[in-house]
Amino acid sequence: MSLSINCEKLEIILNSLYSGKLDLIKEITKLIEIIRLDEYHVSIHGCKIKVSTVIVNHAKSDDLIHGWNLLESSGIPMKILSKMFFLNTVYKRNSIKESGTVEIDKSTHVNNKSPDIIVLLSLCYWCNEYNKLYEGRNFDIKFQEVKDNLPYDGVNDTLVKMLELINLKNKNIKGKTKESLVKSVIIEIQY
């Protein structure tokens, strides 16, 4: 699954992060929206994703976008969540060395660790799919549980992890610069 993400933007963001500049925030702001590129591809935070290769064969862009809109219109702050999940994706990609891909044989490679942002997109897709298949029957029952339990308060945890990563990669960033970076990211994530 990880192979399906165009990582060019991830690299830009990471380089900004390691250098201690605030370009990270600008990048995320610019690229926040989920965009339908064509029938089979979406872009989120600048990463081009082929929907059918990260969720299920028959998934199309519109299914995902409908799911995203369904969650957003029901009061789930998708933009905040997506920034948080995306930062976690960036963090894990660089702090965990193993790719998660297992070579079963020459013709089968499987990745059992979906990037966090893909998990969020999967939630959008499967919510929409359930709603479609069952015409919304009892959807609200489970949906309320989703709303109550999504990790909204995980923003601070994400930031702590990102700081660890900055410390790891760039020893020259001083305390005040880090503080400033964290404050800016908090503002950017929450609004």
């Binding site: 399906s4 299920v56 028959h58 089968t108």
Partner: peptide, 11 residues
Amino acid sequence: SCYIDDVSSEF
């Protein structure tokens, strides 16, 4: 266990 094969892209 559901997965998508990275090589064939099949679910």
